[in-house]
Design a protein around this nucleic acid. Sequence first.
RNA 1: CGGAGCGUAGCGCAGUCUGGUAGCGCAUCAGUCUGGGGGACUGGGGGUCGUGGGUUCAAAUCCCGCCGCUCCGACCA
Length: 439
Amino acid sequence: MRLSHSLIPTLKETPAEAQIASHRLMLRAGLVRQTSAGIYAWLPIGHRVLRNIERIVREEQDAAGAQECLMPTIQPAELWRESGRYDDYGKEMLRIRDRHDRELLYGPTNEEMITDLLRGSVRSYRELPQILYHIQWKFRDEVRPRFGVMRGREFLMKDAYSFDLDYAGAVVSYRRMMLAYMRTFQRLGLKAIPMAADSGPIGGDMSHEFIILAPTGESQVYFDAAFEEIDYLAQGAGGFDHANASDLERFFTSMTTHYAATDEKHDPAAWASVPAARRREGRGIEVGHIFYFGTKYSAAMGFAVAGADGKPVHPEMGSYGIGVSRLVGGVIEASHDDAGIIWPDAIAPFRAAILNLKQGDPVCDSLCEALYARLGPAALYDDRAERAGVKFADADLMGHPWQIVVGPRGAATGRVELKRRASGERVELARDDALTRIG
RNA sequence: CGGAGCGUAGCGCAGUCUGGUAGCGCAUCAGUCUGGGGGACUGGGGGUCGUGGGUUCAAAUCCCGCCGCUCCGACCA
């Protein structure tokens, strides 16, 4: 994209409402704009980041054997009456009436709907197990939205639902999703720690939340550094394969034996047994949550398949959520400095920015155009008639992993300066060497 | 849902107490000089002061209602 004709409204000053780093930076770097309390419009570069996170989430869900589908945002009240949650959910659920006075709601989650879909089509135990997921907007009418997209009312969530014939199968699905989550967070450049959790309004007795450390987190968390040392993406020996039951077993054991707890479940005695050098604690933000809840919905909603003996069986279910839009804020909380955002390569809106320090100078212009032609959509070309300082400041603010600085000094000999945002390291190189370096 | 506060130009704010017809910085537009970390100068444009009503010769300013937003607490992907 050419910055001169893009809707990337960066701000020098911070809007008054933003309290935390990620919110301030998302507004200042032009990623989002608030349209109502807890509801945001995603501007072009914010949207690119959202899509990049979505892509990684999708790849890992697919790799774990989950099937992508897409359910609507608007749901009929009737389904929620079947599960009994229509009344239980309370004011957080946005209730709507259509022109025929039929009761609808903007979905805060999809257990009822997915259960309804499967009960309409799945008849035999032979068709199980199955895991389905979608990435869809949700609405929860929070009393007090805050922290930008970290706690909005409308948010993008990946939610997956597993259906197994029996408990043993449900455990495998649960572990498989848990592994997919750890892989996903690692690819996003985050250290997420799984912590045993209460299952909350969804019900059930096996549940973990995934927490990343950030000073603005909602709760105090404690964990063993062992979690940070595991490479969830490793292949072969020591790695974990979704399809291998003993790998999943070994993976799950390591996830549940090392100490990890939020403050409400914190056990000082157990904590004391963790070697001091391995103790990690701080504020944590929840970026994912997984639940096993057995036959709660399949039983309440009359979903049964024929078992091997011909008798009806209610499938065992689990649900698995990742806050995709919240992760944009979460990544920024975990990766920024005084100058702005520092995007991990995997989700950066642009791999590189091309900074033309002397727009209108034929040599600089043609060198920039050549670079832009080679990099294409991976690059943001700052072709504005702005001074160098403005371009440096905006590039740092937006956090592109690489900056290619083209100024009259080097351009005469075809040389550019390449800056790595994360380290601040700069080197001067020939144009093509810079392109090679960026990869 | 309890408590507190704010709404004046795109953003950040002053002006409100003590009524007299709206101002500052940044941004923006034109021009000149500049040119490697948010530059300087000159000259412009942009606001029914959230909204409805009331008081008054006169309301951003005083009074009442409503709407929106924010912060603290309890609650949440």
